[in-house]
């Protein structure tokens, strides 16, 4: 871990100003990803701006049209907040699918959105990685890529976004509220928050340096009754997803009025499958229709040498997640 200056921000404005002033400065919230990467010498900030005292940013409160979740609310707080559990159970379950109880007590909503890939080549400074060191090459492309992307990758990077929470936020059409360097706030629809790697895999998302996530907002929706987050992993808990599915349905009579299918572990960002959603809308919630949606979702998948299984697994996981979304006892 390289030496850095530590500052404890006392206001949003101060935090933003401190980070904006130094190109190599970083915000610190839960620290669960940043400190790990600093120990590995992957992240090398010279200035750390500690946000954890900005307690107003940890509030979760109802809004006229839904809910506002402060960026510093911990994963555990969000997952267990009564409003979230009742109105957005998909978000609760997605969060609870991630990491461990300890990490969920530390990790924040804002930090979780900023989580970087778990690609092993990214973590090892002895290996090439365009995300870590632009221009050095992608060791994973022809390497061991069982955990890597099947959608939206480029020859520069095949890493996946590793989080669970964001997959639910994509399904729930969240809005990310940001405070910029000039003190102004702006919002980014969640679907525009993360980026595909393209030629600039070093950029995980569309935040500018110094911009601070202050909240995530969710509008009211009709998904609370029929949603499920399914995570398939190599062990029963505390592991990253092989494939994850955030599934949500809103029914009108026995027809599907609205559908959300977002896949985790398959792309550089949460992968919303509008193909699957389109295949579901207007149909009945039957296994056959779920299968058709799953086929549609995977149609454009382009597996790599070691992850072809994700295509079939993804299909099956989509069907199962949709089935569980329909099962109100779960």
């Amino acid at each position: 871990m390289r030496p850095f200056k530590y500052a404890r921000a006392t206001s949003e404005a101060e935090a933003v100003q401190l980070v904006s002033a130094t190109p190599t400065a970083k915000f610190l919230a839960g620290g669960t990803n940043l400190l790990d990467l600093m120990k590995e010498d992957v992240e090398r900030p010279t200035q750390i701006v500690d946000l954890t005292r900005l307690s107003h940013l940890a509030q979760i409160r109802p809004t006229l049209n839904g809910i506002s979740i402060g960026a510093l609310a911990t994963n555990a707080q969000v997952a267990n907040h009564p409003l979230v559990r009742q109105n957005y159970p998909l978000l609760s379950r997605a969060i609870l699918a991630g990491a461990s109880a300890q990490i969920r007590n530390m990790a924040t909503v804002g930090g979780n959105l900023m989580q970087r890939t778990r690609c092993p080549y990214f973590y090892d400074t002895a290996m090439p990685c365009n995300k870590r060191e632009p221009g050095s090459g992608c060791a994973a492309f022809h390497g061991l890529n069982r955990m890597h992307a099947i959608f939206g990758y480029s020859d520069k990077c095949i890493a996946t976004y590793p989080g669970d929470m964001a997959n639910a936020l994509y399904a729930l059409d969240a809005t990310v509220k940001i405070r910029g360097a000039n003190g102004q706030e702006r919002t980014i629809p969640i679907r525009d928050f993360h980026r595909l790697p393209g030629d600039t895999p070093e950029q995980d998302n569309n935040l500018q340096h110094g911009e601070l996530i202050v909240a995530v907002e969710l509008a009211k929706n009709d998904f609370a009754k029929h949603s499920y987050y399914l995570k398939v992993r190599d062990r029963a808990s505390y592991a990253f997803a092989l494939v994850a599915v955030a599934a949500a349905l809103a029914l009108e009579g026995d027809r599907i009025k609205q559908a959300r299918v977002v896949l985790g572990g398959v792309a550089h960002k949460p992968w919303r499958s509008t193909e699957a959603e389109d295949a579901l809308v207007g149909k009945e919630a039957t296994e056959a229709n779920f299968r058709a949606a799953a086929e549609a979702a995977m149609k454009e998948a382009k597996p790599l040498a070691h992850n072809a299984y994700k295509v079939e697994l993804g299909k099956r996981a989509i069907v199962l997640a949709l089935q569980r979304a329909m099962d109100e006892t779960i």
Partner: peptide, 21 residues
Amino acid sequence: GACTVIVDGRRVLSCLTLLAS
């Protein structure tokens, strides 16, 4: 999880907790 301690009543990982915070 070997480094788990309780901070302000909640279990956290002390290896990823900056002392300064």
